[in-house]
Simulated scan of single mutants.
Amino acid sequence: MIRVLVVDDSAFMRKMITKFLTSNHQIAVVGTARNGEEALQKITELRPDVVTLDIEMPVMNGKETLEKIMADDPLPVIIVSSQTRKGADITIECLELGAFDFIAKPSGSVSIDLYKVKQELIEKVLAAGQPNNKEHSHPAPKPLSQLKSGFKNNRSTIPPTGTVKQLICIGTSTGGPRALQKVLPKLPKNLKAPVFVVQHMPPGFTASLANRLNHLSEVTVKEAENGERAKEGWVYIAPGGKNMAIRPEQGELVITLDDRDTASLHKPSVDYLFHSLTSVKGFEKVAVIMTGMGSDGTEGVKGLIKNGGGKVIVESAESSVVFGMPKAVLNTGLADEVKHVDEIAASIMTYMKKERA
């Protein structure tokens, strides 16, 4: 049983979140709190496994409360955030501070339509409450000695010449903002490849994420725009609520965004981005799958390998907040390397050519 403390200054929100969570037999709400100060007292008294934490509260707000939790006795915290620009910026800061994940209130600080995110809230609490947050319910990944066995593909069909261009594609979900913060700032300013990133997020948050990462990085990081041409040394983050695809046009890569639903049920979808790259010829591809729930990206990796090859890096269980997405790719036997998040940027750079003819 996962024991949850619900923190929100709205009695209505506390009641609704409690109702939704306790509808799942694996979750018990052991208490509620009206502000951060009260929450810290309840954490000491009740020892919950997971905390859902509102941001905008009197006495002590969510960010201040999170800082205290992470400093004193870290435990999984799910931020319950408004979709305002200010709310998005603070949410990204909370994820950097160590929050497990966040839920966006559909319509403001008191959302009577909170039922729209009921299932998402339950799934994230269940994931946060897992031992070490590692999705232990799944089979163990294949040993590294088996990574490349038993899969017919066109890997390495692109000759290793200096004339071939390169691109990097990254997929991540829960824990992704912190992981990206440990990878993108380590990429050099003169990176000879564009980088395309899918981070599972709802609309309104990816612009704040891109702005924050841009401030921290030597490469330019931005939220992707429909129709723009990708540049080397630039990082393009798919907007929340949009799928991003890449199409070749006269030797350049053009970004297209759309609203269509996908088999992965995510928007943006890692599979959707990766599948679009199968039609991009003349580019060596480095695919990276990092922390996240589920398996989005696995089918995309299979497609990349079958259609022109590429190198595949997955984040290790040790550093993943949730090992779902990396494990799913690892179990296909298609990963070239399994790396701690602190080593992923260096691993990417081992595949980057210093010069091109």
Rank of each mutant, 00 (worst) to 15 (best):
D9S: 02
S10G: 08
M13F: 05
M16G: 00
K19E: 01
N24D: 12
H25F: 00
Q26W: 09
G31L: 11
E38M: 07
E38A: 08
Q41V: 14
K42Y: 11
T44P: 04
E45G: 12
L46H: 05
R47S: 15
V50I: 13
L53Y: 04
D54V: 09
P58N: 01
E64T: 12
E64Y: 05
T65Q: 12
E67S: 12
M70F: 06
D73L: 11
Q83W: 08
G87F: 05
D89V: 14
D89K: 13
I90M: 07
I90W: 03
L97M: 14
D101I: 09
S111V: 04
K116M: 10
E120P: 05
I122K: 09
P131A: 01
N132C: 10
K142E: 14
S149F: 13
S156M: 13
P159H: 02
T161K: 15
G175H: 03
G175P: 05
P177S: 03
P185Y: 03
P188R: 09
L191F: 13
L191P: 08
K192V: 08
K192R: 10
A193H: 06
F196Y: 06
F196L: 06
V197R: 00
Q199V: 00
A210P: 06
E218Y: 06
E228P: 07
K231T: 07
K231N: 13
V235H: 08
A238W: 01
P239I: 11
G241I: 04
M244C: 03
A245R: 03
P248A: 11
E249C: 07
E252Y: 12
E252V: 09
L253H: 04
V254Y: 01
S264T: 12
H266Y: 10
H266R: 11
P268C: 05
P268D: 00
D271Y: 03
L273P: 06
L273E: 13
S279Q: 13
S279D: 15
A287S: 11
A287Y: 03
V288P: 00
I289L: 12
I289F: 04
G303Q: 00
K306H: 13
K306V: 04
G309A: 04
V312Q: 10
S316A: 10
A317T: 12
S319E: 11
V322A: 03
F323M: 05
L334E: 02
L334I: 14
V338D: 02
V338A: 07
H340N: 05
H340S: 08
I348F: 08
T350D: 14
Y351D: 01
M352W: 14
M352H: 04
